[in-house]
């Protein structure tokens, strides 16, 4: 007999059927849905701090996480979210090398779909992979990161972390700094933060900016100091090491000097500014440990905690939609 967490009735009252079958992109959301998802996730965050975390909202459901790219935090976050909701969760990490990657994607998805899962959580290295897969399966698909396109659950957990730290997202100035070009986190965040009324800046060298990024509804800065001046939130992005050997920026030490966040540069941000990072961090490359580990400044641990809560909210809402089918 599983003990059900106290306070679940309150959460249950907040659940709502998600209007779409799949959760693929921040661009698919509207402000009302985002508000509902964040409220629901707030409830789960409270539940997750209790001793008994298990609830029965997804009892009998099967969730498969299918990660073609290595991931620790996102995959375990979805796994934990599914298990705390009472679903059966299996994790799959097919090796990208077996055949051609693409065949693996659709073939694997169709095979798994035949096992009648309710929700498939997918990460893949190609932009649009989750959307392609959603056209080939009958279950719900959650995009847990597709190439350089989107990572919508990350944007939601970032929004929740900000809302809990500042009481609102509307009106905040958020500076997204670093490798915007290759970042799906940046794309989802720009969309979602604009939707919620934040002022968004992107900050980084021009070699790491997408074409026409100014037309995304953001302020573009090529200087970190001006880019984070007065910002309430400084969100640092991960820079992959292979991009620091001359192709995009000359060297790791030059990058840290110009674009890495330390306490001195952070002094230019708003007085009670908070620092975020989607992880995993390159300490001493894009962020100084001194800043990352200061819990009065850093929201990085909150982001991880909110990750589970937000994913519980997404799974619950999609499952509620399945109920109505």
């Amino acid at each position: 007999m599983v003990t059900i967490a106290p306070g679940i009735d309150e959460v249950r009252a907040r659940t709502f059927p998600f209007p779409r079958r799949h959760f693929l992109s921040a661009a698919d959301l509207d402000p009302v849905q985002v508000g509902e998802l964040l409220d629901l996730a707030d409830g789960f965050a409270a539940l997750n701090r209790q001793m008994t975390k298990k609830v029965d909202l997804l009892k009998g459901r099967t969730v498969i996480t299918l990660f073609f790219e290595a991931s620790t935090r996102t995959q375990s976050s979805f796994e934990l979210a599914g298990k705390r909701l009472g679903a059966d969760v299996i994790n799959m990490s097919p090796r990208a090398s077996s055949i051609s990657k693409g065949e693996t994607l659709v073939d694997t998805a169709v095979t798994l779909n035949a096992m009648q899962p309710d929700i498939l959580v997918v990460r893949h290295g190609s932009s649009g992979a989750a959307s392609l897969l959603s056209q080939k399966v009958s279950c719900s698909v959650i995009n847990a990161g597709d190439g350089q396109h989107e990572h919508p659950s990350q944007a939601l957990l970032d929004a929740l972390s900000m809302r809990r730290a500042f009481g609102r997202v509307d009106g905040l100035t958020v500076a997204i700094c670093g490798d915007v070009l290759h970042s799906r986190v940046a794309r989802s965040n720009v969309t979602l933060l604009n939707l919620l009324g934040a002022r968004v800046r992107v900050v980084g060298p021009p070699t790491l900016m997408p074409a026409d990024v100014a037309r995304w509804g953001v302020e573009v800065h090529h200087d970190l100091k001006s880019g984070i001046a007065g910002a309430d939130v400084v969100m640092m992005l991960r820079l992959q090491l292979e991009r620091m050997q001359g192709a995009f920026v000359p060297s790791m030490r030059e990058y840290f000097r110009l674009w890495g966040l330390d306490r001195e540069k952070l002094a230019r941000a708003a007085p009670r500014a908070r620092v975020m990072h989607p992880g995993p961090m390159n300490r001493g490359v894009e962020i100084d440990s001194d800043v990352a580990d200061d819990l009065t400044i850093s929201l990085i641990q909150d982001q991880v905690e909110m990750g589970v809560a937000v994913r519980m909210a997404i799974l619950t809402s999609l499952a509620a939609r399945l109920d109505n089918r």
């Binding site: 649009g128 597709d146 794309r187 997408p210 074409a211 990024v213």
Partner: peptide
């Protein structure tokens, strides 16, 4: 290379 392909996250050529 364009605003559109940038949003889609596609590798693009000018």
């Amino acid at each position: 290379e364009s605003e559109f392909s940038g949003r889609l996250g596609l590798a693009a050529e000018p």
